Simulated assay, not measured.
Amino acid sequence: MGSITVVITGASKGVGAACVHGFAKAFPDGVNLVLVARGIAGLKKLEEELAQYANVKTLTLAADIGDLQACKAVVDATIEAFGCINVLVNNAGLHHRGNFSEQTPEQIAAMVDINLKAPLYLAALVLPHMQPKANGTPNAIVMVGSLAGRAPLQGAATYSGTKSGLRAFTYALSDELREKHINVAVVSPGPIDTSFIMDEIDEVEDIVYSQPMSSPEQVADSIVALASGENTEISMPWFSGKLTTLGYLFPRFRRVTRGLLYQIGRKNKDKYRQRKA
């Protein structure tokens, strides 16, 4: 297998940065990593870290992927540098927290742009550049969803809605592209131990912390596995994925258990605050 080309959005920190290292380790024969994020400083730091891998070539692109023209520029630059795209990881995400009635239209639009429109834009743009699968070379589009996309989450209506839409799109596109041997998949994690929720712990809904916390590396491992395989979804933690299925199928179950889950979440929040202190 020769070098593969992987585009990762939101690459500068958290799950995105863990994915960068994950793909570097997973493909020792060579990997071209296209690192996309809004801030160039974080990307440059990550690029320096990748110097330890002899098998890696990098391209760092500062871009706001909520804009279609920026998405086009990312794909054009990737093709100019490496000639094709094997894997797209739609990891970038945005969450303005709080009840829907308290959010501005601008905040809502920004979440829709980053969480839903950008992954669709990028998927449409990269598909013409994906080569037929050969010699074990992966061909995949992997979305970073959320357990909030599997079951409605009070206090995060827009975020939950965008992740639910992303999951539905994944399953539909997966069926469309199956015969072309392009795997379209989604990882649906619960809380992840990153700045995305830990730096805003007081603003995050208590119920989020009721579930076991995953590490960025665990989520990245699932993303690499989805990119290299044929599964459509990995929910994590496993048991939390089953709970969200029950909550979606049986809304009464979700409402009845909500109070207990909030209690558990509040207790866990206190533990995380102490850890942070």
Rank of each mutant, 00 (worst) to 15 (best):
R150E: 13
Q52S: 11
M213W: 13
E102D: 13
I192M: 03
A277L: 12
T244S: 06
Q52L: 12
T5H: 04
K180C: 02
S188I: 08
T245M: 14
C19F: 13
A140R: 05
S101A: 15
Q131S: 01
R150A: 04
G98Y: 09
G30D: 01
R266S: 10
G39F: 02
K180T: 06
G241M: 01
N99H: 05
L120P: 00
I79E: 07
T5L: 01
G155H: 04
A11G: 03
L43M: 07
K45A: 14
P132L: 07
R266T: 02
A73N: 15
P119D: 02
Q211G: 08
E80Q: 07
E179F: 07
D206W: 05
C84G: 12
A148Q: 15
L226R: 00
I201K: 11
G2E: 15
V208T: 11
V186N: 08
N91R: 13
P216C: 12
S228W: 07
L147P: 06
A17S: 14
N135P: 00
A124S: 09
N99F: 13
E200W: 14
I79R: 06
Q154Y: 14
P212C: 10
I223N: 03
V7T: 09
V142G: 00
T60D: 05
R266V: 04
P191A: 14
E106T: 15
V208H: 02
D206G: 00
R150T: 08
Q211A: 09
R273D: 12
P216F: 12
Q131I: 06
V87F: 15
F196I: 12
V75M: 02
L59H: 05
N91G: 13
M198P: 02
S174M: 12
H181T: 13
V112L: 11
G247W: 13
E217G: 03
F100V: 07
D199R: 00
G190Q: 05
K72S: 04
R38F: 03
G10C: 07
A134N: 07
T244A: 08
G145N: 03
Y272V: 09
V34D: 03
E217Y: 01
Q69Y: 02
S210F: 11
V6N: 08
G165V: 15
I65G: 03
M1P: 02
Q52V: 13
I114A: 06
E179H: 09
S12I: 09
A277V: 08
E217Q: 10
I201E: 06
P138E: 04
T257H: 03
L94G: 01
N99Y: 08
T137Y: 09
N183G: 14
Q131M: 01
G66D: 05
A118F: 02
T194K: 12
K269H: 06
L243T: 11
H21F: 15
E106D: 15
L243P: 01
P128H: 00
A37L: 00
A124V: 04
Q131G: 00
F196R: 11
F82L: 01
D64M: 10
K267L: 03
N268T: 14
T58C: 00
V6S: 04
T194Y: 14
V75E: 06
P105C: 12
